[in-house]
Design a protein around this nucleic acid. Structure first.
Length: 430
RNA sequence: GGAGAGGUGGCAGAGUGGUCGAAUGUACCUGACUCGAAAUCAGGCGUAGGUUUACUCCUACCGUGGGUUCGAAUCCCACCCUCUCCGCCA
């Protein structure tokens, strides 16, 4: 959520900045609402002041045993207008709030201008794609060839866009998550957290998924009046740890990492990546979240992005870092780097991590604050990134480490997590 | 799931329907005392919004939402949460 003061003080500037990300701000509607708010609020508060003063008089007069019927009569007809004013004001405030919740974050000055994915800027490229002297298979053929990746059964159990793994492949998936958590906790100073996978609407609103993106979420009915949502990313429960909190200055930055399943309905994405486990309704991810001092957030974004990259480096997977352009960054983000891993079967780099600085956008929605140097509460900045998406990392390993015989080599750093094995052997030909 | 108790400022904790945004303690800030610190003394110290060039003034907030009333932290209703005991359970 943007600071309403910003819109009051520099509406044109905000509109211009939002236009860069393809959002058209209805400035006239905002101004009209603001104007009305001012009038109604001033009038209502005047009436409230009058009522309070008169009521106080009645109390004082009664204490002295005086007759109060004259003053009572004076205030009697105040009630209706006051009530009308109060409900009108409430209505306007709700409309303003709703409008505000629909507005995305302003792109940071260093976010490249652009309209779509095509305008994203490559920042760096690390590692060299391996050259194969045999015909490369994609991860589906590799996994099914091993007899350890089974979409048909997953579809029977649940439906499309779910996957089922068996044996060494399932273990490799687990190994990846363990490995990532170990690196982030032991080398990068993150505290591992275990969090709920079902969250309430306040949490979803806090990080920006609601009210605008309800269609992308799975939900369950908790009671007749309350819904719970399946998390689309650990960002939601982890960042909301500080919702309505005031963090002591000396505790910043807070650095949390969590391994969770993620559930995404992605109603709009049907037809894309239908083959394989690139785009699933359920996938695992190790998430990195930092709660930081506002002056340190861009520094922290670079740090966090580097920490996600460390995983790819240790796994010896080639990748590149993209600075997303203003038209491609997410709703809540001011700046985003995507990490894209090399997938030989697609002959392309594909997103495997997204690292964003939300500045105070989420913090304002969450009322997540810290006590500043002067002791005043001030909004924190929130940063997060995937470190990494486990399913897609598994895809990258299957494709980049595949062998001509159908087996898959296990990256050196994962071998300790795989009982010392160096390879997932191909099924013996029968 | 059943029974009971309770939700008030950073924390602890008072609060007969009227001068209560709220006593008191504690923490914190400033000043005095001190070579310095501790102790002591004095003052300050919630959040959000509106108004004013400014000083100021005003409004809202005592778990949440409704209601009663000229007036609600206080009374009524519903809901949420926490704690204790019982039941069930990985």
């Amino acid at each position: 959520m943007l600071d309403i003061q910003l819109l009051r003080n520099d509406l044109d500037g905000a509109a211009k900045s939002l236009a860069a990300r393809g959002f058209e701000l209805d400035a006239a509607a905002f101004q009209a609402l603001e104007q009305e708010r001012k009038t109604v609020q001033t009038r209502t508060q005047e009436l409230q002041a009058k009522r309070n003063a008169t009521s106080k008089q009645i109390g004082q007069a009664k204490a002295k045993g005086e007759d109060v019927s004259a003053i009572m009569a004076e205030v009697a007809n105040l009630g209706d207008e006051l009530k009308a004013g109060e409900s009108k004001l409430e209505e306007i405030q709700a409309k303003l709030q709703e409008l505000l919740l629909q507005i995305p974050n302003l792109p940071h000055a260093t976010t490249p201008a652009g309209k779509s994915e095509a305008d994203n800027v490559e920042v760096r490229r690390v590692g060299t794609p391996r050259s194969f002297d045999f015909l490369v298979k994609d991860h589906v053929d590799v996994g099914e060839g091993l007899g350890q990746l089974d979409f048909a059964t997953a579809t029977k159990i649940t439906g499309s866009r779910f996957s089922l793994m068996k044996g060494p492949l399932a273990r490799l998936h687990r190994a990846l998550a363990q490995f990532m958590l170990d690196v982030h906790t032991q080398e990068h100073g993150y505290t591992e957290v275990y969090v709920p996978y079902l969250v309430n609407a306040d949490s979803m609103r806090g990080t920006g998924q609601l009210p605008k993106f309800e269609a992308d979420l799975f939900s369950v009915q908790k009671s007749e009046t309350e819904k719970l949502y399946l998390i689309p990313t650990a960002e939601v429960p982890v960042t909301n740890m500080v919702r309505d909190e005031i963090v002591p200055l000396e505790n910043l930055p807070l650095k949390f990492t969590a391994h969770t399943p993620c559930f995404r309905s992605e109603a709009g994405s049907y037809g894309r990546d239908t083959r394989g486990m690139i785009r699933q309704h359920q996938f695992d991810k190790v998430e990195l979240v930092q709660i930081v001092h506002p002056e340190k957030s861009y520094e922290a974004l670079e740090e966090l992005t580097g920490q996600a990259e460390t995983i790819l480096k240790k796994l010896e997977l080639p990748y590149r870092v993209m600075a997303l352009c203003s038209g491609d960054i997410g709703f809540s983000s001011a700046k985003t780097y995507d990490l894209e891993v090399w997938l030989p079967a697609q002959n392309a780099y594909r997103e495997i991590s997204s690292c964003s600085n939300f500045e105070a956008f989420q913090a304002r929605r969450m009322q997540a604050r810290y006590r500043n140097e002067k002791g005043k509460p001030e909004l924190v900045h929130t940063i997060n990134g995937s470190g990494l998406a486990v399913g897609r990392t598994l895809v990258a390993i299957l494709e980049n480490y595949q062998r001509e015989d159908g087996g898959v080599d296990i990256p050196a750093v994962l071998q300790p997590y795989m009982g010392g094995h160096k390879v997932i052997p191909a099924i013996a030909a029968s």
